[in-house]
Amino acid sequence: MLVVSRFRVPASDASAFRSDMEVAHAALAERPGYLDGTLGRNVDDPELWVLSTRWENVGAYRRALSAYDVKLHAVPLLSRAIDEPSAYEVAEPGTDLNVASARALG
């Protein structure tokens, strides 16, 4: 599972934001099911940042979000992300993808 969170950050806040993003990433990286992650800044638009993480499955990511350290260090940063879908299934050759349909809530 891939999570891509993009952020629009004014240049004047870039240094503080980068530090906050490193702390948030470290908190996420400590959680079970985390595989790897990357922080980045867009080369054409330096106010656009990304935090990309990979997880064993969607459940591991969702459980990570409820951990105390993540709520303390990552959720405040993630709440600043651009409002767009961020969770993706990895489409590797030969894998079946989820069926595109509404999901039941209960």
Score class of each variant (00 low, 15 high):
residue 59 G to N: 12
residue 33 G to L: 11
residue 99 V to E: 11
residue 71 K to P: 12
residue 67 A to K: 14
residue 5 S to G: 01
residue 25 H to N: 09
residue 31 R to H: 10
residue 15 S to T: 03
residue 22 E to M: 00
residue 49 W to M: 02
residue 67 A to H: 05
residue 102 A to S: 11
residue 62 R to S: 14
residue 52 S to T: 10
residue 88 Y to I: 02
residue 1 M to D: 12
residue 21 M to H: 00
residue 105 L to T: 04
residue 90 V to W: 09
residue 10 P to M: 00
residue 45 D to L: 08
residue 83 D to L: 12
residue 44 D to W: 00
residue 14 A to L: 04
residue 97 L to K: 03
residue 32 P to Y: 02
residue 74 A to Y: 07
residue 65 L to T: 13
residue 87 A to C: 15
residue 21 M to G: 05
residue 57 N to W: 06
residue 71 K to N: 09
residue 88 Y to L: 12
residue 36 D to H: 03
residue 70 V to S: 14
residue 104 A to V: 12
residue 94 G to T: 03
residue 47 E to R: 05
residue 23 V to R: 15
residue 43 V to F: 13
residue 16 A to Y: 02
residue 48 L to G: 00
residue 105 L to S: 03
residue 95 T to H: 10
residue 103 R to I: 07
residue 58 V to I: 14
residue 22 E to V: 07
residue 58 V to T: 15
residue 25 H to T: 04
residue 58 V to C: 13
residue 76 P to R: 00
residue 80 R to T: 01
residue 2 L to G: 13
residue 77 L to Q: 08
residue 72 L to V: 14
residue 7 F to E: 01
residue 95 T to E: 01
residue 105 L to K: 13
residue 77 L to I: 09
residue 17 F to K: 04
residue 67 A to M: 05
residue 85 P to R: 04
residue 46 P to H: 12
residue 65 L to D: 08
residue 12 S to N: 07
residue 12 S to F: 05
residue 69 D to A: 15
residue 68 Y to L: 06
residue 61 Y to D: 10
residue 74 A to G: 00
residue 6 R to E: 04
residue 83 D to H: 05
residue 15 S to K: 14
residue 49 W to I: 01
residue 37 G to Y: 03
